[in-house]
């Protein structure tokens, strides 16, 4: 049962548990090692500071030769995150290397929060505000940070509220 991919994922988990990089955590679902939950804290001194952003990583047997699918579950306002939570991140696409592990992926995403790349926008509005109206960009990001602290139910309620106002 333990294929190369699964053994590798167990080692990724051991490493992440023993020597966790600051501000990130992740663990496989208890019943399915191919499905991981993760949390990234917004990096300090950025608009994302203190946000607790939840993500999901899905692997298949081609890992680590192919990257996993990574998706934000928390609502994000970031130039490189699509509305459905998917990311536009080079190392998860054409710059993937089979030497990356879960810790490396999560660390890269954490630094993407810090350093957006407005040249390959996945969220055009966020990219535009990031370039032209930093104040408004920060305000919108702070709103998602506050969202990230809420329960999923409350988040939905908030989203409906804001939709109603608009």
């Amino acid at each position: 049962m333990s294929t190369n991919c699964r053994r590798r994922l167990i080692r990724d988990f051991k490493r992440l548990s023993t020597d966790p990089p600051g501000g990130i955590s992740g663990s496989p679902c208890p019943d399915n090692i191919m499905l991981w939950n993760a949390v990234i804290f917004g990096p300090a001194d950025t608009p994302f500071e203190d946000g607790t952003f939840k993500l999901m990583l899905t692997f298949d047997e081609s890992y680590p030769n192919k990257p996993p699918t990574v998706k934000f579950l928390s609502r994000m306002f970031h130039p490189n995150v699509y509305a459905n939570g998917e990311l536009c991140l080079d190392i998860l696409q054409n710059r993937w290397s089979p030497t990356y592990d879960v810790a490396a992926i999560l660390t890269s995403i954490q630094s993407l929060l810090h350093d957006p790349n407005p040249n390959s926008p996945a969220n055009a509005e966020a990219a535009q505000l990031y370039r032209e109206n930093m104040k408004e960009y920060v305000r919108r990001v702070r709103a998602t940070v506050e969202d990230s602290w809420l329960d999923p139910d409350e988040q939905v309620a908030m989203e409906q509220d804001s939709a109603g106002q608009a």
Binding site: N32, M34, L35, K54, M56, T58, F59, D60, E61, S62, T69, K71, L73, G85, P152, D153, Q155, V156
Partner: peptide, 13 residues
């Protein structure tokens, strides 16, 4: 191998 997909992030969370 079949990659799992989660359709409803709220329910999943």
């Amino acid at each position: 191998t079949r990659k799992e997909t989660v359709d409803d992030p709220v329910a999943y969370q």
